[in-house]
Amino acid sequence: MSLSKEQKRKMYKSLVLVRKFEEKMRECFLANKIPGFVHPYLGEEAVAVGVCSALIEGDKVFTHHRGTGHALALGCDPNRVMAEIFGKKDGLNGGRVGQMHLTDVAKGLVASNGIVGGAAPLSVGGAFACKHKKQGNLAIAFCGDGGSNRGTVHEALVVASVKKLPLIMVVENNLIQGANRFADMCNTETIACRAAGYGIPGVTVDGNDPEAVYEAVCQAAERARSGEGPSIIECLTWRMDGHYIGDTGFGKLPGENEEWQKKDPIKLYSEKLIAGKIATQAELDAMDAEAAEVVEAAEAFADNSPFPDKSVITNNVYAC
């Protein structure tokens, strides 16, 4: 599915929004504006943008603890995302749940998860719901290279493949899980090769190229939407920051960050857009500036939103 000039520019805008937001989130965390922990997505933006650009209204997304980029790429309001991360009342979830549990049902962000590998079983239900409603939708489950080892992912792929559910398992392989190296935690070169065990397609793509991710998702989506069942898409990428902000780079080797800096998804994509005459440097700079403004406004919005009152503690434990 080839991308129009407008779609490519939109992708760039989305990439820089996620980037600026992540940088701002880091800044705010270090300024003690954010309680608890945050898990930065810095450097992985192309996966979120590539995947979410291929989705249509009604598709269901289930993600993990590092899902801020997914929320923004799906079009969630940056003000309300930031307010939720700050624990403020005007956050997406009322300020009660924070960065790991963001949802925005209207935008398709059904669940985010603090349990590694937790999205997979839920996404099977989401995929079934899409199949049942017969509107051509599908479900996306995000997991990391670490999460892909869990039995939850195995079982989800068993059920989805047997029942031919419209599911795409997107494995964000950023080569580190906590403080451990992917190579030490997997007996095969790739995670995608496990797909053969379920009788489904699995591909490994450059996760720092949003168009490569987009293409792979489009192919898997066509398969899913036409009732042929699930696929695995493994996106190779690198998280520039720590597992959480404040982590001093456990598991990374000296020089690795610098090597991956050369493959920075935004740097590479901006070069591609300029070379392909999709945008000029000035236009990209303007998009950067616009993203920076949006993110500044999000910080201000979150700053100005109050903390939730104690009286809301017992709200919505149950449906009724």
Partner: peptide
């Protein structure tokens, strides 16, 4: 009635995920 595989984790997740997407299960 969906007859499931012997995958209790995924079966439970199926129910929860479908419910989150508007289907009582």
């Amino acid at each position: 009635f969906a007859v499931s595989t012997i995958t209790e984790t995924a079966n439970a997740g199926y129910g929860v995920g479908a419910a989150m997407c508007g289907l009582p299960t």
